[in-house]
């Protein structure tokens, strides 16, 4: 547990790594468990390669479904990638992965709870050296905006999926099942998560210096700034709705639930 910090020469000689008396480890522990659970669940689903479509619902891990092997009904734009031999989810799932991995909130979450850098404030980290985001691969976090752009494209498609969830089996409109509500809610939460993004805040107006010369962008910046203060909440809420929406489709597609309410 070498640190080169709090026992450096000249500093007050105090042996304890931290003198905090509160339960500072609770939050990183819960974050660690929750994110690990999500990674396990999504890996299981992404590689499963079945139970991702139950008319009119499609799981977001498999949408847009571009591989030739996609089940009929789920196919997107004629499923053009016919040579793809693996789970169609693998064509898509890297986008939300990259989006969340480079997200400023999740960076805080995993730097604290997985890398313990630092585990909590004023608790010494266990590493001998530290270069932050100055080198590869972590310097790539600076291109978070590109992940955001791709994420926004996916949001449009998932919103379309939610609209399609209002169809009856015969293709006519007007169906409303529990799944319709779940898919719609999930799309809404993903929009809130993406729009409250720090890169989005910069893009709409943050990069401007003269707000007074750009009144419309200033308004947008003010609006996004309000959403941005809740970005962490939307990160967790949308992560939960992703799991709920996917698991619901799994239950419906595997036949575990059925009936007109589905």
């Amino acid at each position: 547990m070498a640190t080169t910090g709090i026992d450096a020469p000249g500093r007050a000689k105090i042996a304890a790594k931290t003198l905090r008396t509160d339960r500072w480890w609770v939050q990183p522990l819960f974050t660690f468990l929750a994110l690990t659970a999500f990674v396990v669940y999504s890996t299981w689903r992404v590689f499963m390669n079945k139970y991702y479509y139950s008319d009119p619902y499609i799981s977001l891990f498999y949408s847009p479904c571009l591989a030739g092997s996609c089940v009929p009904g789920a196919q997107f734009a004629g499923a053009p990638i016919t040579w793809w031999a693996f789970s169609p989810a693998l064509l898509i799932a890297w986008i939300p992965l990259a989006f969340r991995f480079t997200c400023y909130y999740y960076r805080k979450a995993y730097f604290r709870s997985f890398w313990l850098s630092p585990p909590a404030c004023a608790v010494a980290e266990p590493h001998g050296s530290y270069s932050g985001e100055t080198k590869l691969p972590l310097i790539l976090n600076n291109v978070h905006r590109y992940a955001l752009y791709l994420g926004l494209v996916l949001n449009v498609i998932l919103t379309w999926d939610a609209i399609l969830a209002f169809r009856n089996p015969d293709g006519s409109w007007g169906h409303v099942g529990l799944g319709t509500l779940i898919l719609t809610l999930n799309a809404f939460c993903l929009w809130m998560y993406s729009l409250s993004c720090h890169s989005c805040r910069n893009a709409v107006g943050g990069r401007i210096t003269h707000f007074s010369k750009h009144p419309v962008r200033y308004q947008m910046w003010t609006f996004i700034s309000k959403l941005n203060t809740h970005h962490m909440r939307w990160a967790w809420v949308s992560l939960s709705t992703v799991v709920i929406a996917d698991f619901y489709v799994y239950l419906a597609a595997s036949g575990a639930i059925s009936g007109s309410w589905v």
Binding site: K108, F111, S117, C121, A122, Y130, I139
Partner: peptide
């Protein structure tokens, strides 16, 4: 000034 060293873990904000 080493901006890249900051890993946005927000302890500055907390204190």
């Amino acid at each position: 000034h080493g901006l890249g060293y900051c890993n946005i873990t927000k302890c500055c904000t907390e204190v």
